[in-house]
Amino acid sequence: MAGSGRPVGLVLLALGPVLAAAYAGAGHLAIRAAVRAQTAGPAWEGGRIDESGLTSLGVDTWRLTWWTAMVVGAVAVAYLAFGVLLLRERRGRTLILVVSGVLIVPYALGFGVALFNPVELLAGLYDSPDFLAGLPAWQPYTAWLLLAGGLAQAVGMVVAAAYGRRAAPKPPDVAEVNGQS
């Protein structure tokens, strides 16, 4: 089992950006399904549809989903980079850990926004029951992908920090430096 910390830590750290992308992809699929239901519903009055096939509500909800995924994804990539730096036998580990502690704020805010489910909120604001009815039942649970990515990266940071600390050269003992045993 010796030496298994490095690959495990890297895999856990890589899950953050992957799950942020999965959140965006699942959100896009859900929004497309809701737009199809909206345009096929009885309340549809023939509003504007853009070149990508989304209604105004679809565009707005996709933008919110996309920006949430982008913010969380950017932070997740930063955590991946920090984890790689922690694996190295260099100084500056304290600064990396402090900055990574600060970066948890945008990660948590992104999860909070996703958990608040802006897709449903905007559909209610636009008063579009057909859009709401077209959302897949699994759509509200996509926010948990961001939480899973954050938790995996937190464990990955701990594994990377522990592995890097073990790999770092030990400072000489004071008794050895003074010639005493």
Rank of each mutant, 00 (worst) to 15 (best):
V72K: 05
P106I: 04
D127V: 15
L87M: 07
A2L: 08
Y107L: 15
S56K: 05
P136F: 03
W44G: 10
D127Y: 01
E45M: 15
L13G: 03
P136A: 06
L13R: 02
G83W: 01
W144I: 00
R166H: 10
A167V: 09
V119D: 03
V177F: 09
L146I: 06
D173G: 02
A148G: 14
A34V: 11
A137Q: 12
A143N: 09
T61S: 06
V159P: 06
A162D: 11
T65D: 00
L146S: 05
R32Y: 01
A78R: 03
L86A: 06
F111C: 07
A167L: 13
I96W: 12
G112S: 13
P136S: 03
A69T: 03
V113R: 07
P169G: 12
T39L: 02
L86N: 08
A114H: 07
L125R: 12
L109A: 15
I104M: 11
G156R: 06
I96L: 15
W144Y: 15
A33M: 10
A154M: 05
S128P: 03
D127K: 12
L64G: 05
A137S: 13
V11K: 10
L145A: 10
L135C: 02
A175E: 14
V119P: 03
L54G: 00
V159F: 01
G73P: 06
G83R: 04
L125K: 11
E176M: 13
V155Q: 01
D173V: 13
G9P: 02
G110H: 02
L97A: 13
Y23D: 08
E89N: 02
G25V: 04
D60F: 01
A22W: 11
G73M: 02
T55R: 08
N178I: 13
L151D: 08
W144C: 05
R88P: 03
A114I: 11
L19M: 09
L122I: 00
G41T: 13
V158N: 06
G9K: 00
K170V: 15
